[in-house]
Design a protein around this nucleic acid. Structure first.
Lengths: 232, 232
DNA sequence: AGTCGTATATTCGGTGACGAGTAATCGGAA
DNA sequence: TTCCGATTACTCGTCACCGAATATACGACT
């Protein structure tokens, strides 16, 4: 949607924390950590300071003072501006209400798995589900422990992450089953191709057919975004 | 895991297509499109040419010839090298077998939703599920149509994407229900905070507690990656 | 008194991602 | 025949991201 002046998701977190009360960059990182947000928002020092500078440049936050303790480096404290507050609310609203396709690497990998052997792919995917199971088990345990000390509202991101991990594991299991019992159509051709090098008819067809149908029917309508960025 | 010399996922697709047969960059983009991969791998012209150049620089592909038709710009054709083929297999194997946390924006947004009103959040999330439902409906229809003409193996990425979208919609619905019937703990405090500005005790506790427990128990073990990149 | 480790706080250079822009050609309609 | 729009093919400048490195202070221990 609306192109953000500062597009990094970290900027949203900065706005949120600075809206709560004026803070200096390092403190922002600390609070983010102590509240466990570093699991859901990637904090990177380089990015943090760049982001803060950019937010200031665009008038979304302002420096309210520079102080120093002893001979430590100066700490510039920032507060949110009215524009920044508005931006934050609008942006957050957008992120919550519209789903954008973010091209997870796994999806890309799936689309290219044809270059490997079916059996090899099965082995790899089995490893994946095992890893996910372990991850979910650990996550659930930690979450349970946290839920004892904290209202669940403050933990929804974690519940979401786990739910999605579980969903993925379920889906991959399904795929594995379908490969195993040969109920997934095309595995035979795939195997044949890997053994002989003869390209599956489907590929040839597609490459030839090109865009006899509208090329990107779906892609036109769905929003997309790969990485944090849209500056403009 | 292993830091990739060329980290952009698009590079993997380039390797895969060029391993099939020598191609020039523009052709790569075309094939990617005609095979419908642009839904699962973000193709960007700027990135494509950079990626090809980098792959060549690192000896993963080699230019096999330059020809031109009429006075069109030259087309440099590239073929995969042995190193490139190995890299592709290993990389693809890694992407399939290990799940990395890619920090979806929605997860970040969820972790910050506290700055909005509960009712507003509900409204926004309702919009989201509706949009997802629509997306899934359209996707399922298109997929059904494609499944008629193509073996399903070639469509797994799409099935995956839809499965995940559905899972997300299910989860969000669950959350909405829990907010609505007040079975999600902390909504009361949240509401109170929004109305009065009194910070929930939980936040204060956390900010104070800082890292009396190991700060990033989980984060240490899970791999992470925000955006395409790791160059090194 | 020395020094080791950790917390504080930030800078900086390199790299790559991006998408708008360019430029040439071709096919078809007026 | 000429003009328009689509297609082919690629380039370039800008901008953001990253994380390693820097520099200082403080507390604890020897």
């Amino acid at each position: 949607m609306a192109r953000r002046r500062v597009g990094n998701t970290l900027a949203l977190a900065v706005l949120a924390l600075v809206a709560e009360q004026p803070r200096h960059p390092y403190e922002i990182a600390q609070v983010l950590r102590s509240r466990g947000k570093e699991n859901s928002i990637k904090i990177n020092y380089g990015s943090l300071y760049t982001v803060v500078r950019n937010l200031e440049k665009h008038g979304l936050i302002t420096a309210t003072g520079v102080d120093r303790e002893g001979r430590r480096p100066e700490r510039t404290t920032y507060a949110v501006t009215e524009a920044g507050d508005a931006e934050m609310r609008e942006w957050l609203g957008e992120l919550l209400s519209v789903r954008v396709h973010e091209f997870p690497r796994f999806e890309g990998a799936l689309s290219l798995m044809g270059v490997l052997d079916p059996d090899q792919v099965s082995t790899l995917l089995e490893r994946r589900v095992e890893a996910i199971d372990a991850h979910v088990a650990r996550g659930r345990a930690e979450l349970a422990e946290l839920t004892g000390r904290l209202p669940r509202v403050f933990l929804v991101e974690n519940e979401y992450e786990l739910a999605m991990a579980e969903a993925e594991a379920r889906w991959v299991r399904g795929l594995l089953d379908e490969i195993a019992d040969d109920s997934l159509s095309g595995v035979a051709e795939w195997r044949h191709f890997r053994a002989t090098g003869e390209a599956p008819a489907a590929w040839v067809d597609m490459d030839a057919a090109d865009r006899e149908l509208a090329p990107t029917e779906a892609a036109e309508h769905d929003q997309e975004a790969t990485t944090d960025d849209p500056t403009g």
